[in-house]
């Protein structure tokens, strides 16, 4: 069990999302940064869809009531155990009675805490993800609060090798880290130094030539009113050549739609299932983790990518992740 001593800014339980019910109007939710969520699970031998804790900017304070294996992946929100700084992107062993807290956020916006066996909450419609607006799923359908007690599961096959290696903790220390970690080719995406790649949306050609140019020239500033549903973007207003009523149709994680005021909205994990605004673009899936690590107030710019190229890069990325998974599995055995 883990006790929440302080809640943090917005801390929720998430997994890979709630699929299969969008036809009923139920949004997918799930981790905003699917890459960090997945690697955090891989590092412990969890299944990729095990529930993790999504921590936003200002982290919680957690007290471990029992020994546990954990990993912290995503944005660097300065994790510390009993006052000592802790490495990210690697498995660690934490002793009963230790306290995990977060300091000044250094880089990125969200981080994921995974635990061997996964966080245990009642699944709703097949998923542990929190859907805040409907008060559904996750921990009682809400963000974590002071006093909450979190359960976690136990792996059928514990990562034995790692366990032996890590459990030899010096009595004076509260935790021990693995000697290896995930390489920067997988983890350096949290720095915001490249434009986000976007393929044209279904209504791209309905925008004026000027607006099409403005969209890719950018930059846009992420509005402070942004949330898990979407980033509101402020910049040059984008206009349609001719006003047109769009019939509502499905949108997805990464769809960029433009309401009548001309300021685009980039839809994220908690997006509605359907939308009726013209869609100027769609973020390539490989760049969604980068988007999720951007903070309100930051600037974002877009560069064009074809649909074919986006899909090819996605398949390539998956191959690399499978390779990473095999590498980690060898370490854990």
């Amino acid at each position: 069990m883990i006790s929440v001593l302080k809640s943090g800014l917005m801390t929720t339980i998430q997994d890979t999302g709630r699929y299969g019910y969008q036809k009923d109007g139920v949004i997918v939710s799930g981790a905003m940064d699917p890459l960090a969520h997945r690697i955090a699970n891989l590092l412990l031998g969890n299944s990729a869809d095990a529930a993790t804790m999504e921590i936003t900017l200002m982290g919680p304070v957690l007290e471990f009531q029992e020994d546990a294996f954990i990993a912290i992946c995503g944005g660097n929100l300065t994790p510390m155990i009993d006052g000592d700084s802790v490495s990210m992107w690697k498995p660690l062993y934490i002793k009963k009675g230790s306290e995990l807290r977060f300091g000044q956020p250094k880089k990125g916006f969200r981080t994921y805490l995974s635990i061997a066996g996964g966080f245990q909450v009642r699944k709703v419609m097949g998923s542990s993800s929190t859907y805040l607006r409907a008060n559904m799923g996750g921990f009682d359908g809400r963000t974590l609060e002071k006093g909450d007690q979190l359960r976690f599961g136990h792996l059928d096959s514990q990562p034995q090798h790692l366990k032996e290696q890590l459990k030899t903790v010096d009595k004076a220390l509260s935790f021990k880290e693995a000697s290896w970690f995930v390489g920067p080719e997988f983890t350096n995406y949290t720095k915001n130094d490249q434009p986000i790649r976007v393929m044209p949306g279904r209504e791209f050609d309905l925008f004026t030539e000027q607006s099409k140019e403005d969209f890719f020239n950018g930059p846009f500033q992420i509005d402070s009113k942004s949330d898990r549903m979407g980033y509101r973007l402020n910049g040059t207003a984008l206009n349609l050549e001719n006003k047109k009523d769009i019939v509502s149709e499905a949108v997805t994680f990464g769809t960029i739609q433009v309401p009548p005021d001309g300021n685009p909205i980039l839809l994220l994990a908690d997006h509605q299932t359907t939308g009726g605004y013209p869609k100027i673009g769609q973020v390539a899936s490989i760049d969604l983790p980068r988007i999720a690590q951007m903070r309100p107030g930051e600037s974002v710019s877009f560069s064009p990518i074809t649909h074919e190229e986006a899909q090819r890069l996605l398949l390539e990325k998956e191959k690399n992740l499978k390779q990473l998974q095999r590498g980690i599995e060898t370490k854990l055995r």
Partner: peptide
């Protein structure tokens, strides 16, 4: 999954 709308059907 699929998402039916007024005049479109989207397949994930």
């Amino acid at each position: 999954e699929y998402i039916p709308a007024f005049s479109t059907l989207t397949i994930l």
